[in-house]
C-alpha cells in the first residue's frame, strides 16, 4: 500500500456514556478517495471534527504528513495543507464569490497582517482565486454576492476555496448534499480527477457517488469502523448490509 498522508490511530471520543468515536483507525493514502459512510448518528461528523481540529479527542492520535497533529488547532492543520469543506456551507455570505476565494489564497499565502494595499489589487491572490473559481466552473460568478448563489454553487465555491490552499489532503463533508442529479454527476467527475492532486476523505450519503468514486470505503457504526475495503468488499460485507443498508437489503 502507498504511503498514508493522513492516518488516524485508535481515536476515542465520548460524550458522557455515548461513545461517539470508539477506537477508530483510518488511513488516507496518496491518490485515493476514501469514503466514510455510516447511518445517521454513527459519529461521522464527530470524527471529521477531530481530524480537522475542531474537537480534541479523548485519546488516540491523528497524523498528517508524518507529523502528529492531534494537539494542533484547525488553522495550524490548514496551514499544513489539510483542506476541509463543510456539510452546511461555511462561507462569508456578505462577501463576493471572488473575495471568498481570495480569503483562501490569503490564508495559504500567510501574509494576513497587511493593512494598507487593497486585497482586490493583490495580483498573486487574485490569480490563485480566479484560477480555482475557473476550475470549479464559477468564474463568471466571481463578482456575485455569495448569499445570492444557489445551493449547488455554494458547494462549488467551498471546493474552490479548499483548492486555493493547494492542499495535501481534502476532507469533504457531504459535498453532494442537495445538489440534484446533474450537479452530483458533475461534481463526481470533478472529484474523480482531483484525487490525483491530493487524496480525499469523503463523507457522503449519496451512495451512487460513493460507489462511483471510492477506492476504499470505511463503514462507521456507533462510533466504530466495522469494515474497510473496496467497493465490492463493502457491498458484499454481511455486517455492513445489516447495519447500513438495512436487514433485507
Amino acid at each position: 500500500m502507498t504511503k498514508a498522508i493522513l492516518s488516524v490511530r485508535d481515536l476515542c471520543k465520548s460524550f458522557g456514556a455515548l461513545k461517539a468515536t470508539d477506537h477508530v483507525n483510518l488511513d488516507l493514502c496518496t491518490g485515493e478517495i476514501h469514503a466514510l459512510i455510516g447511518p445517521n448518528g454513527a459519529g461521522k461528523s464527530t470524527l471529521i471534527q477531530q481530524i480537522a481540529g475542531g474537537m480534541a479527542p479523548d485519546s488516540g492520535s491523528v497524523h498528517f504528513l508524518g507529523q502528529d497533529v492531534t494537539q494542533l488547532s484547525t488553522p495550524k492543520r490548514a496551514q499544513l495543507g489539510l483542506a476541509r469543506t463543510f456539510q452546511i456551507s461555511a462561507l462569508a455570505m456578505e462577501d463576493t464569490v471572488l473575495q471568498n476565494a481570495m480569503l483562501g489564497a490569503l490564508g495559504a499565502q500567510g501574509h494576513v497582517f497587511r493593512f494598507f494595499g487593497a486585497a482586490s489589487k493583490d495580483r498573486a491572490l487574485r490569480e490563485v482565486a480566479k484560477t480555482m473559481l475557473e476550475r470549479v466552473g464559477l468564474a463568471d460568478m466571481a463578482g456575485a454576492r455569495t448569499s445570492d448563489l444557489s445551493h449547488g454553487q455554494r458547494r462549488q465555491l467551498e471546493v474552490a476555496v479548499a483548492l486555493t490552499l493547494k492542499p495535501r489532503a481534502f476532507v469533504m463533508d457531504e459535498p453532494m448534499a442537495g445538489l440534484g442529479a446533474e450537479g452530483s454527476a458533475r461534481l463526481t467527475e470533478f472529484l474523480s480527477d482531483l484525487r490525483q492532486e491530493a487524496p480525499i476523505l469523503l463523507v457522503e450519503h449519496d451512495m451512487d457517488a460513493v460507489f462511483a468514486l471510492a477506492d476504499r470505503i470505511s463503514v462507521l457504526v456507533y462510533g466504530q469502523i466495522i469494515a474497510t475495503g473496496s467497493v465490492a468488499d463493502i457491498r458484499a460485507h454481511p455486517d455492513v448490509r445489516r447495519a447500513y443498508l438495512g436487514e433485507d437489503a
Binding site: 484547525t74 488553522p75 490548514a78 461555511a90 455570505m93
Partner: peptide, 15 residues
C-alpha cells in the same frame, strides 16, 4: 470581515 461572518471559514483557511 470574513471572521465576523463565519469564524469557521477563516480557521479552515489557516487564519
Amino acid at each position: 470581515n470574513a471572521a465576523r461572518q463565519n469564524a469557521m471559514r477563516v480557521e479552515t483557511v489557516g487564519i
